Simulated scan of single mutants.
Amino acid sequence: MNSKTAKESFIVMTELVLPNDTNVFGNLMGGRLMYWMDIASALAAGKHCNSPVVTASVDNISFESSIKLGNVVHIEAKVTRAFNSSMEVHMKVWGEDTVQQYRYKSNEAYYTFVALDPNRRPKPVPQLIPETEEEQKLFEGALRRRQLRLILGGKMKPHDAAELKALFAGE
């Protein structure tokens, strides 16, 4: 199985914020944005492994700036690291006011996906080759984020998380 680069999985998904997407304050509802982010990150993961994928986890999503009715949402997604059958996808979300002509960061997040074979069982995925300095930083941090996800999900004991222990113990 050939390795792939992060840019090979890169996608941009664009949506217009309509009245049905907003809350009573005229802001994009967080749940609607999370739905769009799930689609965008699934597209990036599927592009990386050339197979169907399912969402395994969603990391913390912090909203920096609200996105208003009539603004445009741009979701940039790409795979940051591939493990055995899972892939971490990083997303940056931008709002764009097309009338005032400016773009602003709304949030970023990490989603994890598992690739599936035709029998809906996990299947191996191509490894990822980071090329840029930012990709290398995201790649290196992915192992710590994965260990934290596994601990929080009850699939790993904290004392087995060597990468996390090294971060806190200064090893």
Score class of each variant (00 low, 15 high):
128 L>Q: 00
143 L>E: 15
128 L>R: 00
149 R>S: 04
123 K>M: 15
153 G>I: 01
129 I>V: 11
139 F>H: 13
121 R>A: 08
123 K>I: 08
127 Q>F: 10
156 M>W: 13
139 F>T: 08
128 L>M: 07
128 L>A: 02
139 F>N: 00
149 R>D: 02
145 R>Y: 02
137 K>E: 05
123 K>S: 11
153 G>H: 06
151 I>S: 05
124 P>F: 15
125 V>G: 03
129 I>A: 05
142 A>P: 03
123 K>A: 12
151 I>V: 13
155 K>W: 10
140 E>K: 05
121 R>E: 12
146 R>L: 15
124 P>N: 07
126 P>M: 12
141 G>D: 03
147 Q>L: 13
128 L>I: 10
134 E>I: 13
136 Q>M: 15
138 L>G: 06
123 K>L: 13
148 L>H: 07
142 A>W: 04
141 G>Y: 09
137 K>R: 14
130 P>M: 05
156 M>T: 10
128 L>T: 12
134 E>H: 10
130 P>Y: 13
142 A>Y: 02
129 I>M: 06
141 G>I: 11
153 G>N: 08
129 I>R: 14
155 K>N: 10
123 K>N: 04
136 Q>W: 15
154 G>P: 05
138 L>Q: 09
120 R>S: 14
136 Q>I: 01
145 R>S: 04
135 E>Q: 01
153 G>Q: 09
132 T>L: 10
124 P>M: 11
152 L>S: 00
145 R>I: 05
127 Q>P: 06
126 P>D: 06
135 E>C: 02
134 E>Y: 11
151 I>H: 02
131 E>C: 03
149 R>Y: 06
143 L>H: 01
148 L>I: 14
141 G>C: 03
129 I>T: 06
